[in-house]
């Protein structure tokens, strides 16, 4: 799926990176557990997210031929291309983890186009701790809890609150202090988030987000979303 030539070029540029990620051993196992996604997924990223474990999490469940990755910004060019995609009439699942400015535009454009938004999350991460404020719907039911479990398993400190304004059940909150020496794993939330957004119905228990390794952990404020056209 190509948004425009411009974004296609961007997709190619990032596609190489995504391709490297998808060469990881064990991917097939994870996909089998998760249920392979066979519809196009466009992943939007900005800034350091491009080099984070977020894309790694997505790649665990979306085959390369169905995944396109695009950088966002808040320029007029991106807005034109994204609007064109939203209004193309092609059913597409768009997931992303981007900066606040890009997210403000993306979600507004999605609404204006009539797209559905089953997930909206705000995230703040610093060394050894992350905060997550989530809005979920019926189709992403349980995703926040799964993210919470992953955060807990990773050992980094976190707080998570989920609002389900249109659910009969009440919202919930989770929090944990960091385990000793867990700061190095604080990027795992991004991998888990990528996995969950790419495959909201998938079984996550068989998969553990990979260790960050030498990559600097993702720090700062981000917004995640799932958009369906």
């Amino acid at each position: 799926m190509h948004v425009t030539r411009r974004s296609f070029i961007k997709g190619i540029a990032l596609g190489g990176f995504a391709g490297v990620l998808m060469a990881r051993p064990g991917r097939a196992l994870a996909r089998a557990a998760a249920g392979v996604q066979s519809r196009p997924v466009l992943a939007l990223v900005s800034g350091a997210v491009e080099r984070s474990a977020f894309l790694q999490g997505i790649a665990e469940t979306v085959p390369g031929e169905f995944l396109r990755v695009q950088r966002t910004d808040h320029g007029m060019g991106f807005v034109r291309d994204f609007n064109q995609l939203l209004r193309s009439g092609q059913p597409t699942r768009i997931i992303g983890l981007v900066d606040d400015a890009s997210a403000a535009l993306i979600v507004e454009l999605a609404r204006a186009s009539g797209a559905r938004v089953p997930w909206l999350g705000y995230h703040a991460a610093s060394s050894g701790h992350s905060r997550h404020r989530l809005l979920s719907t019926e189709s992403t039911r349980g995703c926040a809890m799964r993210l919470g479990r992953q955060l807990s398993a990773c050992g980094a400190g976190f707080s998570l609150s989920e609002q389900r304004p249109h659910h009969a059940e009440t919202s919930f909150e989770l929090a944990a202090r960091p385990h000793n020496g867990a700061a190095g794993d604080s990027d795992r939330w991004a991998a888990a988030l990528g996995f969950i957004l790419a495959a909201p119905d998938a079984e996550l228990s068989a998969w553990m987000p990979p260790s960050v390794g030498t990559r600097p952990p993702l720090a700062g404020n981000f917004v995640s979303f799932a958009i369906e056209t």
Binding site: V117, L120, T137, S139, Q163, H166, S171
Partner: peptide
């Protein structure tokens, strides 16, 4: 439907979304 209403809930105010759903 919930996923149709969520895009109308990205508020930026210092209050919970639920109060403006």
């Amino acid at each position: 439907k919930q996923e149709q209403l969520v895009p109308y809930m990205k508020i930026m105010m210092s209050v919970d979304e639920a109060g403006h759903a």
